[in-house]
Amino acid sequence: MLELFSTVYEVFMRTYPGFLRATVVTLQLTAIGVVLGTVIGLVFALMKISGSKILQGIANIYITVIRGTPLIVQIMFLYFGIVEIYTMDNFWAGAIALGVHNGAYIAEIFRGAIQGVDPGQREASMSLGMNRKQTMQRIVFPQALRRSIPPLGNQFIITLKDSSLVYIIGVGEIFSLANREAAQSFQPFESFLVVALYYLVLVMIFTYLLRWYENKLDVDKA
């Protein structure tokens, strides 16, 4: 037991400069995946509630295809598929794949949050003479945004962990580093244990920040 602890410690101390650099890459992938996913998600959520059959159809196809196929396939498809038309950095291919993937899930989060706002809110707003656009902008969206923060936070954490899958196209984030370290040092157990700890700490920090933000919003409202 003590021996295991000391070898893990040894691997940790030897690898941390590389892991810290790779952590930056992981966080960049996550940030781009989240921001891009939020933008795409918002667009598709609006399409789904637009009332236009064509826009709804497009959004449904997108959401069904993305949610119905594995992320790793989407990463490979985007990387090798797009390279045919446009030479793309593997980092950007991975980040965009994460964003496109997230977009489908976030679209459903936003749609649920918008439709979850009490219909009485819309009625009250309309009865005051506000038109559909004003009602959405001033009354429905601010409330929907609040409601979508907990599930969005959950999705952010999933994205952080999912970013490990882009190792398959050779992006130098923390999982690919652990993978390489495991092969080179013949210490796979220690290497993957160390990378698991990195993910765990990052997720805990994220979770803490999200909880703090949710509490802050509630205090503001109360």
Binding site: D118, G120, Q121, E123, A124, S125, M126, S127, L128, G129, I139, Q143
Partner: peptide, 14 residues
């Protein structure tokens, strides 16, 4: 609607 005020059973305050 702006000329016809309405008060609801469940208030519907924002």
């Amino acid at each position: 609607r702006a000329e016809v005020g309405m008060v609801f059973q469940h208030f519907n305050l924002f």
